[in-house]
Write a protein that binds this DNA or RNA. Structure first.
Lengths: 298, 298
DNA sequence: ATAGTTTATGAGTTTTACGCATAAACTATA
DNA sequence: TATAGTTTATGCGTAAAACTCATAAACTAT
């Protein structure tokens, strides 16, 4: 009885296309042509009998089905890769560094840095997985977890990775007929889109803007940044998102940020590891490399 | 950054070859030729840079490395298949039946029956995973678990699946120079090989044989039936194994059962499901099909 | 209006997967 | 011991999947 699984070629193309919303960008990432990616996506859609992407103005927008399939297969792909990399490194696990990070932050801010780390430390194999919040480092065999907060987690060593600026965004369609320039106070007229992992996102932002009479608690809720952004693009309302999550969409005009400039969050993203494991050579290598990068940026 | 994972074609060939210890049998299973299997195994070994199988007298014997890699990738393959099958059935999960069973029993007694169930219920997609003992039905999303016992588990509905007969087996080499026919009492002269999941296996059998002065508690311990059998083949001692686990090896003479005929166990294998879920159409379909088969066998 | 970018697709090429045939080795049987 | 059957590995060729080049149509930015 053979297993009913699409080819890994197709799944890789699917994953990268979903990441970039673009077959051309996925092609660059995978060292293939756009044509190959396009065909693999189509082949996968045929095999599954479902549209994984909506074709919107030269973009490939993940459908809800596509999103759900991606979320379902990604942990399995992570595990397959981990198993294989561990095996390749002689099972010593010494050469494999497993990093867990929130998906959107990971894909937009951290993964692009990994090739540099890899070139500095070619002997260390990176395995990257998506996780939100503090993982079970031991059970999941995670070396480093990216956490969002103030940098103080009992038992964890934290190294500053990245800041965060939040900005309200919406579809251009929502403001195109206004005869005034939108201000934070106008947010009372819109449905505010919430992120499940940031329950206080809107209320904190409104409080900091002195708008305590606008309801920052209720409204449609979405699980990830990208979901809230898609809802905003669809005109469902205004989402409060970190700038790193929306650069491309802002740049191409699918969303606008008319209610004011980004506001820095008091919290940051940190690379963390259990205190007892900071001496591990591979973990130390990563943290040292990271601190060195932060120093150079300053 | 593309993932470093071998092709699923290769992994499937690896998995089935490990299951049967034979490229020819794997080929039958996967509707391919032996040649294709052989090449895929070699390709995978080249890719990984390690021998997954020892070539022993027209057999492909899993190496310890091969075993460890297989154990590492199997859950990921299971999950990939589950994710895909769930997706194919419209995410309703209504069409996917997840069955958990002990590995040796599953592969030798249950999986061969699944094509018949599938032909009877083509709308129900089977997902099969290896588990020993009572699983967490809810957390692991398991519909049916195969358990070994007396059929009485609180909160579970049990349907009789299969009996079990145990028989002491060893390598032909261990008895080839004897000038008498071995009897149960001669077991005192051999090292008894134990199964971790059957701690009372030997002592119960010896007691039932009236051999209470033979030590049935101590000896080398192995985790699975197949491991104990391999140790027996290697001449390490005598293992007490269920007949269904050793049919092929008995038939081809790699092991012999000289100490007496198989003795039926007071326990059986049952397909179980939480009582509250027995009404589920797919679970009921499976149990009905199973009961119907048992009736026909009687 | 123009240049650049993106997706889908026809047609052709390359790579991977696979099958047929066979030699060597092993196993079972008479 | 001879013979028939089975198994693995492998040469060689074929089929299928993956991929590329080129291009049309659509979109975006200037």
């Amino acid at each position: 009885m053979s297993r009913r699984i699409p080819s890994l070629k197709a799944l890789s193309c699917f994953e990268q296309t979903a990441r970039f919303g673009s077959a051309s960008r996925a092609a660059e990432e995978l060292y293939l042509t756009q044509s190959a990616i396009s065909r693999q996506i189509q082949g996968l859609e045929d095999w599954l009998g479902c549209k994984l992407f909506a074709r919107e103005k030269q973009r490939l927008v993940l459908t809800s089905e596509g999103e759900s399939y991606l979320q379902a297969i990604r942990p399995a792909l992570d595990q397959l890769e981990t198993a294989t990399l561990t095996f390749l490194s002689g099972g010593a696990e010494g050469g494999v560094l497993t990093i867990a990070a929130p998906p959107t932050f990971g894909s937009r801010c951290l993964i692009p840095l990994l090739p540099d780390f890899r070139s500095t430390h070619p002997d260390i194999v990176i395995n990257f997985i998506s996780r939100i919040g503090i993982p079970d480092f031991d059970r999941e065999q995670i070396d480093i977890a990216v956490l969002f907060g103030d940098g103080n987690w009992p038992g964890l060593d934290a190294h500053l990775l990245h800041g965060e600026e939040m900005v309200p965004i919406c579809s251009p369609k929502l403001i195109e007929n206004l005869d005034y320039s939108p201000k934070p106070n106008n947010l009372r007229d819109y449905s505010l889109l919430h992120i499940a992992t940031r329950p206080r996102g809107w209320s904190d932002w409104l409080t900091a803007s002195g708008l305590t009479d606008i309801d920052g608690e209720n409204g449609p809720k979405f699980e990830h940044f990208t979901m809230a952004m898609q809802a905003a693009i669809a005109g469902l309302g205004v989402a409060l998102l970190p700038t790193f999550a929306i650069e491309d969409e802002l740049a191409n005009g699918r969303i606008v940020a008319p209610f004011g400039p980004p506001r820095a969050s008091p919290f940051h993203y940190y690379a963390t590891t259990p205190t007892g494991r900071s001496r591990s050579p591979k973990i130390r290598a990563f943290m040292t490399w990271l601190d060195h990068r932060k120093k150079q940026e300053a």
